[in-house]
């Protein structure tokens, strides 16, 4: 769609109608184009700044001890975040155990009961749930799971993250299943497959690469969540894998170290952030790669 180099009759007519010379309109066009380029450039700048700074500060503080050692008390240098890394992985596992099955089930329902009043309402409310601030999810989990029990627990944190995962998984599952041609479902039904078998072994299986991608994106998103954990999982300076006890998590540790007055802790916060970002980016890149291979495989 290249604009013609010489004014056509139509362009002249347009110019007369708008009452402006073609030259001026051309200049406006060029200026706006320039502004768009600058906007795109400016929007990517913060990311570059953040990543560069993170790599510089984080890499210099990152060593093997960071992954294998426990945090040291104030005043002692060194130490690592072995407990926080483990804690984050455990919290992700709890969240996935809740968010994946419910999200996939709900996504199947939305894709199969398309157009029913319930499906429309659930789709809308799932978007609304997705927009709830994560801190609200935190106080909800606290009210339901911490207050009655009387102490902080990893389970409460994992459940708060799991609830956040549900709408994310639901919507990608629905979208991916919609990409599966209806003819495939019909072919399975015509072969004498029961509905549930058609849905699970033909439709869901065909959509699986896309759903895996969506699940990974959801995991990447909750892996870095801090707000829902502050008063649920709470954090822990010691090694703990007990689900009914407070548990350390990478984002929590970064938060408390970043807001502390100690340089050595700041150093560890940067290292932690680098590990967290690496985790999130690796998951996102894997997800992206999975999406790409799905499209090259093709359906027809």
């Amino acid at each position: 769609m290249a604009t013609t180099s010489r004014p056509t009759g139509q362009q002249r007519a347009f110019a007369e109608r708008t009452g402006r010379s073609l030259g001026r309109r051309r200049v406006t066009n060029a200026v706006m184009l320039g502004i768009m380029y600058v906007a795109a450039f400016a929007a990517t700048l913060p990311l570059v700044f953040i990543l560069v700074h993170l790599a510089r500060e984080g890499a210099s503080s990152l060593d093997l001890a960071f992954f294998t050692r426990m945090p040291k008390p104030v005043g002692e240098t060194g130490g690592g975040m072995a407990n926080a890394i483990t804690g984050t992985l455990i919290l992700i596992a709890i969240a996935a155990a809740i968010g994946l099955p419910i999200g996939i089930g709900a996504g199947l329902h939305l894709a199969e009961q398309r157009g029913t009043r319930l499906a429309n309402a659930v789709r809308f409310l799932s978007d609304v749930l997705n927009g709830l601030p994560s801190i609200v999810m935190g106080i909800f989990a606290w009210q339901v799971l911490v207050r009655p029990i009387g102490h902080f627990s990893a389970l409460a944190g994992g459940i708060a993250l799991g609830v956040m995962m549900i709408p994310l998984v639901t919507r990608t599952t629905e979208e991916m299943i919609r990409l599966v041609p209806t003819s495939l479902r019909e072919a399975a039904l015509a072969l004498g497959y029961a509905r549930w078998r058609t849905s699970l072994s033909i439709v869901l299986r065909t959509a699986l690469p896309g759903i895996v991608t969506g699940a990974l994106v959801a995991v990447a998103r909750i892996a870095g969540e801090t707000a829902p954990l502050i008063f649920t999982a709470f954090g822990n300076q010691f090694w703990s894998t007990a689900l009914d006890q407070p548990m350390a998590a990478l984002p929590l540790q970064i938060y408390s170290y970043a807001t502390s007055p100690f340089d050595d802790w700041h150093r560890l916060a940067w290292a932690g952030a680098l590990v967290l970002i690496a985790l999130v980016l690796i998951i996102s890149l894997v997800a992206r790669f999975a999406t790409r291979s799905r499209f090259t495989a093709g359906h027809d």
Partner: peptide
């Protein structure tokens, strides 16, 4: 630009502080 959305809030905070 999409990657901006993937960066955890706490990392933005850390970068913001320093």
């Amino acid at each position: 630009v999409d990657l901006l959305a993937a960066i955890p809030s706490v990392v933005y905070g850390l970068w913001g502080i320093f």
